[in-house]
């Protein structure tokens, strides 16, 4: 499955990147194609462009705050989870894709 994701936590120093790491690692292990954008203290990094969004089936938003440029995901299936869930139990996040 082609998946895009965004992570964002309140301080943007640590949890944003932990969640990104977990989603990337687990996604690959499960055989998905996944790209994770981070919205942290350094702003948007690894930004999802039109090419990334084209053909994507689902957007995972692991965010505890309002994210920027949410409109990009209009028309896409959106799965919202907390940053903590993404860090603690990333497999459960992907399990919800099959429901």
């Amino acid at each position: 499955m082609k998946i895009v994701a965004v992570t964002a936590c309140p301080t943007g120093i640590a949890h944003t990147y932990m969640a990104a790491e977990q989603l990337e690692k687990t996604g690959r292990e499960l055989g998905h194609t996944i790209k994770v954008e981070t919205q942290g203290a350094m702003g948007i990094e690894n930004e999802l462009g039109p090419g990334d969004l084209a053909g994507a089936e689902v957007a995972i938003l692991a965010c505890d705050i309002e994210i920027e440029k949410r409109e990009r995901f209009a028309g896409l299936r959106i799965l919202e989870v907390s940053v903590q869930t993404a860090i603690k139990d990333p497999r459960s996040v992907f399990a919800r894709l099959d429901q």
């Binding site: 640590a14 949890h15 990147y17």
Partner: peptide, 28 residues
């Protein structure tokens, strides 16, 4: 992290980058 944006912004980002890298490492 200091609150004030560092006058040498590249430097301030450097520290954030280190923290981000550390956060990812801790997942391994």
């Amino acid at each position: 992290m200091p609150e004030q944006a560092d006058p040498a912004a590249a430097d301030g980002n450097l520290h954030l980058r280190v923290f981000a890298a550390l956060a990812r490492l801790l997942m391994r």
